[in-house]
């Protein structure tokens, strides 16, 4: 299945072809994959991931992705 992925801030260095931070790209995963599986496939060390959003909702790393899901992955961020 295909999902759309956006990587933000420092995580952008794990995105293919030096795209802009948050610019979406497609990833093909086996059916039933979780956020954690996606993170492994992208080669992102687990400890660098703080929050992952799936279709606008923050989800735990064992959340199962559906085909066509939009996933945004963030390192620790703060401000205000």
């Amino acid at each position: 299945m295909d999902v759309t992925v956006k990587l933000f801030a420092m995580l952008n260095r794990y995105a293919p072809d030096r795209r802009k931070s948050g610019e979406p790209f497609q990833v093909t995963l086996p059916e039933g994959s979780t956020i954690a599986d996606l993170v492994v496939q992208l080669g992102i060390p687990d400890r660098e991931v703080k929050v992952a959003f799936v279709d606008g909702r923050a989800r735990a790393s064992l959340y199962q992705l559906a085909p066509g899901a939009e996933v945004g992955i963030f390192p620790p961020v703060g401000g205000g």
């Binding site: 956006k6 933000f8 801030a9 420092m10 931070s21 948050g22 703080k50 929050v51 959003f53 606008g56 923050a58 945004g72 963030f74 390192p75 620790p76 961020v77 703060g78 401000g79 205000g80």
Partner: peptide
């Protein structure tokens, strides 16, 4: 802390680092 340390979130991207995460949410 990853947010407050030198070259961490705030030092690299400033408070405007929040734009994307609020947009995503």
């Amino acid at each position: 802390h990853a947010i407050t340390k030198p070259k961490g979130g705030l030092n690299s991207y400033g408070t405007a680092i929040l734009i994307n995460i609020l947009n995503e949410a």
